[in-house]
Simulated scan of single mutants.
Amino acid sequence: MNAATAFTPSLRQLRAFRAVFHLRKLSAAAEQLSITQSAVSVLIRQLEDGLGTRLFDRTTRSLRPTPAAAEAIAVAERILRDVDSLGAGLRDLGALRRGRVSVAVTPTLGEILLPAVVRRFTKQHPEIQVLVDDCSPEQFVSRVVGEHVDLGIGTPERAAADVDTRKLLGDTLAFVCRKDHPLAARRQVRWADLVRQPVITVRPGYGIRPLIDGAAAQAGVQLDVVNDVTFLSTALWMVECGLGGAVMPSAYALGSGRTGLAVRKLHAPVVSRDIYLVTKRGRSLSPAAQALAVVIEGELGRKNEHS
């Protein structure tokens, strides 16, 4: 391999070549590039030496491009256009003038937590597209770890060494009932109080059900589950219809906007169901993802203060 074959022109050399090709004078090229005339001369000479061919014939008054220069200019200009386009695109991404960000969230949490976040974020950054992956609870962590999304909002069902978590919102399991229910008048409801009460909750093995079954077993209670549902929204309208009380995270019940329901934190034991911002460990967030994380923490921080 000879030197010309191995040679890779620098961007400074290509820009000097383009300027001299069009302006025909070293002085004019130097003024356009904001460098000295001798610097332009050196860059052109380096480029010619590296390519092993003469690009300009020198005259007393100007530089005349050679046939080799006439062939090379199209390639040089294409490279410089691509580089300039790349730089502009990266600046736009950094300045949040374009791009997209994706977030994984379960349908339940998405319904109560994301509307305010998305409204605020899109108002601040209208050129950024927000993509929502409404996945099931068991898929939540894998969507983040597999880099299908930039970040996630939720409660990881298991500790994962390959994710980082930041607490967004404190939450606990609660008993939700109509305001005319016998337990609605109590300031504090224990798991033991649910004995012989018809209970509606999520289906076995899904989402929070293992937590519910574990807490009931710890309290020595056999729950009378009259309806297993897939979506907590289903449990809420069933409660409104008088089919029983429901066990669910308090954040969802309080965020549903159903004013006819009482939400009572369950005690003995209290079961935490805190909500986290989840990212893949060691993965840098894009500027758009970082901006969304700031909005998420701001919006949910206010919700936590008022809950």
Results as ranks from 00 to 15, higher is better:
A4H: 08
F7N: 02
T8D: 09
T8P: 05
L11N: 13
Q13A: 10
R24D: 05
L26Y: 12
S27Y: 07
E31R: 09
L33F: 08
I35Q: 05
T36K: 14
T36Y: 09
A39S: 12
S41F: 11
L47S: 03
L47C: 03
D49R: 04
G50T: 07
G52Y: 11
G52K: 09
T53A: 08
L55K: 00
F56H: 01
R58L: 03
R58T: 08
L63S: 01
E71Q: 15
A72G: 03
I73H: 04
A74W: 11
V75L: 08
V75T: 11
L80H: 06
L80C: 00
V83C: 03
S85P: 03
G87Q: 12
L90D: 07
R91C: 00
L96I: 13
L96T: 05
R97A: 01
G99H: 08
V101H: 14
S102I: 01
V103A: 08
V103H: 00
A104M: 08
V105W: 01
T108V: 04
L109T: 03
G110A: 04
L113E: 06
P115V: 07
R119A: 05
R120W: 01
T122S: 10
K123T: 08
P126C: 02
Q129T: 04
Q129M: 01
V130N: 06
L131F: 09
D134I: 02
D134P: 00
E138F: 00
E138N: 09
Q139I: 05
V144C: 11
V145A: 14
G146L: 04
G146E: 12
G146A: 11
D150V: 10
D150W: 03
I153F: 13
G154I: 02
E157G: 13
A160S: 13
A160R: 06
A161Y: 14
T165K: 12
K167P: 07
L168S: 10
L168C: 15
L169C: 07
G170C: 09
D171G: 09
R178Y: 08
H181K: 07
H181Q: 09
A184Q: 01
W191E: 12
W191F: 11
A192R: 15
L194R: 07
L194N: 08
V195P: 01
V195I: 07
V199C: 03
V199D: 00
T201S: 05
V202P: 04
G205D: 05
G205K: 13
I208M: 00
L211W: 01
I212T: 03
A216H: 08
A216G: 13
Q218R: 10
Q222G: 14
V225P: 09
F231Q: 11
L232A: 13
T234C: 07
A235K: 03
L236H: 00
L236Q: 09
M238K: 13
C241W: 11
P249V: 02
S250G: 10
S250A: 15
L254G: 10
L254R: 15
G255T: 06
S256L: 09
G257I: 09
R258S: 06
T259N: 03
A262K: 10
K265R: 15
K265Y: 06
V271T: 15
S272W: 03
R273I: 02
I275D: 03
K280Q: 15
K280E: 12
K280H: 14
R281I: 04
G282F: 13
R283F: 14
S284E: 09
S286I: 00
S286M: 06
A291I: 03
V294W: 04
V295P: 13
V295D: 10
E299S: 05
R302Y: 02
E305T: 13
H306D: 11
H306V: 14
S307V: 02
